[in-house]
Design a protein around this nucleic acid. Sequence first.
DNA 1: GCCTCGCATACTGTAGACAACAAACGAATT
DNA 2: AATTCGTTTGTTGTCTACAGTATGCGAGGC
Lengths: 236, 236
Amino acid sequence: MAKDGKTPAKRLGEQHNSLHNLVYDEIRSAIVNGRLKPGERLIEERLAEEYGVSRNPVREALRALSAEGLVDVSSRRGAHVAHVAPEKLQEVIEMRALLESHNARLAARHKNPVVLKSVEAILAKGQAALSAGRMRSLRDLNEQFHKALAQAGNNELLSEMLGALRARSALLFAPDNPKRQALNWDEHAGILQAILDGDEDMAAKRAMAHVIGAGEAHLKTLRQADTQTASSDQLA
Amino acid sequence: MAKDGKTPAKRLGEQHNSLHNLVYDEIRSAIVNGRLKPGERLIEERLAEEYGVSRNPVREALRALSAEGLVDVSSRRGAHVAHVAPEKLQEVIEMRALLESHNARLAARHKNPVVLKSVEAILAKGQAALSAGRMRSLRDLNEQFHKALAQAGNNELLSEMLGALRARSALLFAPDNPKRQALNWDEHAGILQAILDGDEDMAAKRAMAHVIGAGEAHLKTLRQADTQTASSDQLA
DNA sequence: GCCTCGCATACTGTAGACAACAAACGAATT
DNA sequence: AATTCGTTTGTTGTCTACAGTATGCGAGGC
């Protein structure tokens, strides 16, 4: 039963989740994976139909998702997938840079061999997927990498906050651009190296630069998209 | 209607909140104010009776509070007010120090005169209440001070995160000790002065020291309480 | 006295019903 | 043509009911 001699595997009752939790997981996953787009309308009855449950578990899931900022609920008017206004992107980048940076510092301080081993394994998987051109799996591996890194920081609250922040900004940091993807994984490698070296300042600096670099690249993409839209409007 | 020529006052429909939101506000407030203690059992039917509503709005409120970490819900076993395990207190202090520090830096950078005016007013009220020995209102004024300070940082996401963190740690930073209270308000004054001076580094440093100082004082209180309990056990 | 079992009670999770509210649409009026 | 009004449709918010689950308690057996 026990995997690592310390943490028992989940017991049956813990595995058998309530419907509202299952619905929560599904909707959250759909948002993070981009299946549900920012701003998209979430109709309780339709979701209930889709998942084969009554509306109550859906409502409960939406309350939790709303509290986490993933869903915007307007009383009596319905729910939408949360949309980060372009002016607010900078805030998200800034907060994530601050927290990831601090987490990398902590990881370099603790240097937990078991956790770092698994970070290394995920990095290797990410680099392999990159080389093989398996772009589709990179988003998942990116999330795995950052999640494992958050564990390496050994501060549960920080890890929780980072998780929530990653969920809210998942689409922001999921570039389609292969060049940016390659750079991301290079940066992942650099952060991990600094952590393995126990160099707190370097780890913090690289983590911050990574988030800011990825975030700024995304902002640039948005601005280019705006410029192209403006050009198209002039032609029409 | 408009208060500051920019933000319209709430319209009727926005004021008339749904029951589940009202219940959420009530329970949240009871937790933050200490009327509901950490670890305390939250029974849906009883809360529903107390608030004069059916169980669903209570369940929905509990989902939101659970997502924010203020309430712990065990599937099929019920809900409790969240209890920060003593070993986790250090994490809370650390995260709050990091965020409050960064916020003070931003506030010193922006130096928004309107917001800082209101921070000053709250500081004056806090100091007056302290001099008059009105300890009961200091908790509320402390929350007001930190909330206004979060606004001065001009980063909505950071403000939101700070709000959530303050709610989770409200009882930690609500000392009964008049000496510690006086010191807290001295430190508030020092932070605000650095902000008014536009000194980012000093503001950040003072905010961090304030949180760590208040937090460590609380930890010391816990350790003393533990020591006294042990002594009582020996006498019995 | 301790342990086990069965029953009663309390509580949670979900479904379904109904009322209230919001949005859309078509007809009537200006 | 634009605006207003009334009706219809779609959706949300809350209540009630019922089944499932967890806990507590007392009786019986060892």
